[in-house]
Nucleic acid binder design. Structure first.
Length: 457
RNA sequence: GUCCCCAUCGUCUAGCCCGGUUAGGACACCACCCUUUCACGGUGGGCACCGGGGUUCGAAUCCCCGUGGGGACGCCA
């Protein structure tokens, strides 16, 4: 058996979304699993709807997700060009073969593919018009995921538009032949197109590739498949929000496939090793952003300090958190590492860390009311300020011991000091450990904030 | 309407092919524990074989029908 050749064939008519990314991923995984070739082919035959920006987005997104292509735009290959808009001559040559074989005819200025078989006129209830049906024999699709599927293609169809541009069905098949594609892995929405494609492969006298129609991803809320217009559908969005590409890839790999057993979080090498077509599910999967967020958290938690700080900086740049970016690098690093074990996604970082970088931080009114309502907040703050004035701020434990000693003297608990101190110093009731927060902020800032807060308590 | 695909917790799924399990895991949810807030983590809990017929000693698992969900039916891809 010759080398596996698969292709991802997006059309640059819209934003790159979850469904496309998953199709690309399954193709890429299969190529890597089998030691085959992953071809990127741009299906830009719809001149009216194509755009270069969308095309760049496809390149960028694939690269970001780590799906490098072996042949395709930018890098070339032996079967190029890889943009269909540049392959006009090839389509003409193939079309000529079809015409020579008597398998085409013109109607309304367009070129149609002629099916073989007896013809009859039938009224189509759905389209509200009379159509010509052809008594054709069923096309047989041996699908790697669905098994044997039979479908009759019983109407001629357009392969070249009246404006001279070839249609998807033609170029798709021609390119799969010309690029020697062995396996076609695509969404199940193409399953009913496959009979058209099989007819074309036969008309060209070319071998039909192995098909694998993967289940669709359904939108999280409401009925139907996920589209680029749905919430959380855009890859670009996750990138902006600071999701880790490896987490997204891991999550996507599990939508419609699993390695068997209980394995979920896996390094990409492991996914490649275990991935195979027959293991792909047959039923559609509903997108779940909570599970994605969880996967992201698991990956975030294990990032080495340096990488996490770099990721955090990139995210704060996107959020234009100027105060944080202007801060001392050492201080910035301390703040981020303090926050790392606390967040699920990097997009939480700007609001989560804001008070570290400005004295002008917001105070949560509800929290303030709640915290000041009990005990003697003022007295606690005065005691704490006195203690902190002489406390060693170099380690969390030193600060912790000092506060605990204070609490012991006043017959109170650590918690009696914590909530009010946190409010005074950060304006909220959530955040990293109090002692870590104090250590990073430093004595001066902590004392100043308490002093400023005191009169209002 | 016609054709095609599918069907296990709310969600992703294991188990199905090669019938015998207290139907397993993860996310989410609830409770408790841990704790210095919030998270993380830990323990426990609730939660599923779409319905009906077969076949069989025995069906989530095999077959049929129904129902439900999804997709396609463009001079879009």
């Amino acid at each position: 058996m010759s080398q596996v050749r698969v292709r991802f064939a997006p059309s640059p008519t819209g934003f790159f979304h979850i469904g496309s990314a998953r199709t690309a991923l399954f193709n890429w995984l299969y190529a890597r699993h089998t030691g085959g070739v992953f071809v990127l082919r741009v299906e830009d035959t719809d001149q009216a709807r194509n755009s270069e920006e969308f095309l760049d987005l496809i390149y960028d997104s694939l690269t970001w997700l780590g799906m490098t292509w072996d042949e395709g735009p930018k890098i070339g290959g032996n079967y190029g060009p890889y943009r269909q808009s540049e392959r006009g001559d090839i389509y003409k040559a193939y079309l000529a073969k079809l015409t020579a074989a008597g398998r085409t005819y013109e109607k309304d200025g367009a070129v149609w593919f002629k099916l073989l078989g007896e013809r009859s006129e039938v009224y189509d209830d759905h389209r509200k018009k009379t159509v010509t049906k052809v008594a054709n024999t069923p096309a047989v699709i041996e699908d790697q995921i669905r098994g044997r599927v039979e479908r009759v293609e019983d109407e001629d169809f357009v392969i070249v538009r009246s404006d001279g541009n070839p249609v998807f069905h033609l170029v798709n098949v021609v390119d799969d032949i010309a690029m020697k594609i062995t396996h076609v892995i695509r969404g199940e929405d193409h399953l009913s197109n496959t009979s058209k494609h099989v007819e074309l492969f036969k008309a060209f006298g070319a071998p039909v590739p192995v098909y694998a129609h993967i289940p669709l991803i359904l939108k999280q809320n409401g009925p139907g498949k996920m589209s680029k217009r749905d919430q959380g559908a855009l890859i670009e969005d996750y990138r902006k929000r600071g999701y880790l590409p490896e987490a997204l890839v891991n999550f996507l790999s599990l939508l419609g496939w699993n390695p068997g057993g209980d394995r979920e979080k896996m390094p990409i090498e492991e996914i490649i090793r275990l991935f195979d077509l027959p293991a792909v599910n047959q039923s559609n999967a509903r997108f779940d952003d909570k599970k994605l967020a969880h996967m992201n958290m698991v990956y975030l938690l294990e990032q080495p300090a340096d990488r996490f700080v770099n990721l955090a900086r990139a995210q704060l740049e996107r959020a234009q958190a100027t105060a944080a970016l202007a801060a001392d690098p050492g201080y910035f690093r301390d703040v981020m590492l303090l926050s790392q074990p606390k967040i699920k996604t990097l997009e939480e970082l700007p609001p989560y860390t804001a008070y570290f970088f400005t004295e002008n931080f917001a105070v949560d009114a509800k929290v303030r009311e709640k915290v000041l309502a009990k005990g003697e907040p003022k007295a606690r703050l005065v005691e704490l300020a006195e203690t902190l004035a002489t406390t060693d701020f170099s380690s969390d434990t030193a600060i912790e011991e000092a506060i605990k000693a204070l609490a012991a003297r006043t017959s109170l608990g650590f918690g009696d000091y914590q909530s009010v101190a946190r409010l005074a110093v950060s304006g909220t009731n959530v955040g990293p450990s109090l002692t870590g927060m104090f250590r990073v902020l430093g004595r001066e800032r902590v004392l100043a904030r308490i002093a400023r807060f005191l009169p209002t308590a």
